[in-house]
Design a protein around this nucleic acid. Structure first.
Lengths: 177, 177
DNA sequence: CGAATCATTGAGGAATTTCAAGTGGTGTGG
DNA sequence: CCACACCACTTGAAATTCCTCAATGATTCG
């Protein structure tokens, strides 16, 4: 995968990097409407995978660059999208570096809740393993965090891929912990 | 601090984010010649501090943006700088997420070694606390990692702020571990 | 129904943090 | 010049958190 920028229409996408010894880190998940691939420079440093059936719109990188060259406003748009990506990456570093397991999962759920239309009903397109590799935890630890939140009545889990946020405040409190 | 992009001439700078409960995460260190502040969008999400005496060159953000608008090549330059920053942030997330204490310190030293002229003699401008807050470890763990490397003859520590890389291969091996 | 995959749960172990004490250099005042 | 205080750093032992390993449950699909 190289030289393309993409927009997810349906489904979900994960961007991945592998450490030298094969451990997987999921950098981000992309939902319908999100744009990704902006970071690709000359070297391929990451790969992207669809999660389940996904419709994408591909845009050649060269098209974007020439558009940015010719049109000041597209250049500005590109720059501010990259700024958001950069801030997002830094936020992620903060979460990985300075938060415990429960706090990471809470932050993840809140971030997701803000991105979907029904802000209390989240359909997780990704597996526990994906969440674990995004938050730098194990599957088991993620699962335990979910169960704990369910016990505390912070969330409900009608099914393992469907989360209902019962108490957003408690979730925000948990994130800060 | 806002709306400025800066170039370090002398000394060093750290960029910082605080988690809601006050824990500090140092996102990056900047050495002479480095450029930082590209990520600043409308909201201030991070702050920057000089480490010791530092000379800086400030550039108004608006100047950069207008330059990018008028000149295609400056826009391209800005975009590729941001790409590098983004890749760097993702690499950092990988380090924080998927590496142990020793590996993080090794990665940090290698990264630093590649940035200074004398590739084996590193003068650390930052304290152990700064390194700890960058690598998401404690002061003590960083200190222990240094001591361990010294015992293994991987590095030498003439003083606590001066590192001599004795065996770069061992360091690279350690990083991958 | 059985197999396969994904998720949950529990017990034990490993790595890092926390807490507490000690070292070493540096500057200051006697 | 030495005693002292101060700071950053180092070191050790105990505590905590998360991971590993192993078993069990739930859901889907042939």
């Amino acid at each position: 995968w190289s030289g393309k920028t993409e927009i997810a229409f349906r489904g979900a996408v994960r961007t991945i990097r592998f450490s030298s010894d094969g451990r997987r880190q999921i950098l981000n998940f992309y939902l319908p409407g999100d744009i990704f691939g902006l970071e690709c420079g000359k070297h391929h440093t990451l790969s992207a995978e669809a999660i389940g059936d996904t419709d994408l719109s591909l845009v050649r990188r060269s098209l974007i660059d020439t558009a940015a060259k010719q049109d000041a406003s597209s250049a500005q748009a590109l720059i501010s999208m990259m700024q958001r990506q950069l801030q997002n990456a830094q936020e992620h570093a903060l979460v990985l570096g300075r938060k415990g397991a429960g706090e990471r999962v809470a932050a993840f759920l809140l971030q997701l809740a803000d991105r979907v239309t029904a802000q209390c009903e989240i359909d997780l397109p990704m597996s526990r393993a994906d969440i674990a590799d995004h938050l730098a935890l194990t599957i088991e630890t993620v699962s335990r965090a979910f169960t704990q939140m369910e016990r505390d009545r912070t969330i409900a889990l009608p099914s393992s891929r469907h989360v209902v946020v019962r108490d957003r405040c408690a979730l925000e409190l948990l994130e800060a912990a």
